[in-house]
Design a protein around this nucleic acid. Structure first.
Lengths: 221, 221
DNA sequence: AGTTCCGCTGTAATCATCTTA
DNA sequence: ATAAGATGATTACAGCGGAAC
């Protein structure tokens, strides 16, 4: 009954890794350097109005659509109430302004700079980070985070890449394997062409097979 | 050139997620796997050093924390000194005790429940989600997020797993190929090669040895 | 042409552990 | 052997792209 299973993702088959705006290209360069120029996008929309205005947009939850349900309660805030009670007034109304720190993405330039440094050293020390942070107008922590996340990303991408390489290589090996197997089985040696059909030949081929199996077993262990 | 390694290998990619028997392990959340130990899993082992060095052993998580709470937090929030040159322009809203909203992790129970549902359907519809959210005291959005993140997580893990399988298999193939290559190159056939010199005896003894080793290996496997 | 919804990807930030100097 | 940094896992969010109206 219902175990569903219908889900089945509509699936997109596109797997192209390197599909990210800022990250991909530079990364791609690491592996295969395509000569393509970089600096693709740069449109950082995000017009943050200058600082003066103070707009304060509250939150962005905006669920729209019908689903707006009764925003549940205090919700998640941590249970340990310690400190931080700021209970926003009664919850009577559903205002619930949960201002969750604006999300905020770093600008293209900031990323560019950090990337540049990253290329030189993926593990910058505090000094370097600090300097960068000053230069870019980011908090030192943010720079630190960025590097951390970046390392993780790189690793993931590399892994994926490696995976695909592995796959192709394996396929190659598999073919080779098959070919060799056939060769051994039927034509013994290319030099003399016609293999002898005598008992000796049989023995050697058998031996060969044994060797092969042996190797395989060894690999397994 | 486009190497295009995309892959849509018709091959094994079809597992419906979690269908994998031994996948569970590291998924972080499994604090208690409820359920009798019916999961004889134990596999996935992969040494590999990779860069950076570091062998690491990952282990089952064990976050303890009995249900209910307390999840301690060591010093939370390090107050950075505020003086930071932060202010990334714009948005100067700082000021005030900015309680950087606590991070907050879902409780073990919430996770357990969600996981349970996840097993049945990784893509719950709004109704299901809503119900769950009520039951667990989480905002619907949180539930939604959780499922999303979880899906990605699973995917990543699966990929990793697949990757390691691939690696071992490839290694196996490689060895086998090497062996075959050697065979072909040297001990090819008794007629043309170095085999004609009353090699029979030697061959047979060698063969016997091979057989013995073979048997031993088989036993090990 | 459209628009509404939804899932997925990428990313920011935080915490918990593990390493390492 | 203690403090600092790296790493992995999590929560949360913005946007894109496709599918369903």
């Amino acid at each position: 009954m219902g175990v569903d299973m219908s889900n089945n993702p509509p699936s997109s088959r596109t797997k192209d890794f390197f599909a990210s705006p800022a990250l991909s290209l530079s990364l791609a360069g690491i592996f295969r350097d395509a000569g393509a120029a970089a600096t693709p996008n740069m449109e950082v929309e995000e017009g943050d109005e200058g600082s003066g205005g103070g707009g304060r947009r509250d939150d962005m939850v905006e669920i729209s659509s019908e689903n707006s349900e009764p925003l549940r309660s205090r919700s998640d805030d941590e249970f340990d109430g310690e400190g931080e009670p700021d209970d926003d007034g009664a919850d009577g109304d559903k205002s619930k302004k949960k201002k969750r720190k604006k999300y905020h993405r770093h600008t293209a330039e900031q990323i560019r700079e950090m990337e540049a440094l990253f290329k030189e050293s993926p593990h910058p020390d505090e000094k370097q980070r600090q300097q960068l942070s000053k230069q870019l107008g980011l908090a030192p922590r943010q720079v630190k985070f960025w590097f951390q996340n970046r390392r993780t990303q790189i690793k993931a991408i590399q892994e994926r890449h490696e995976n695909s390489l592995l796959k192709t290589e394996m396929e190659k090996l598999r073919d080779e394997n098959k070919a060799m197997r056939e060769q051994i089985n039927k034509a013994c040696c290319p030099n003399c062409g016609t293999a002898t059909t005598s008992r000796e030949a049989a023995l050697t081929t058998e031996e060969q097979q044994l060797r092969i199996e042996n190797a395989r077993l060894k690999a397994e262990v």
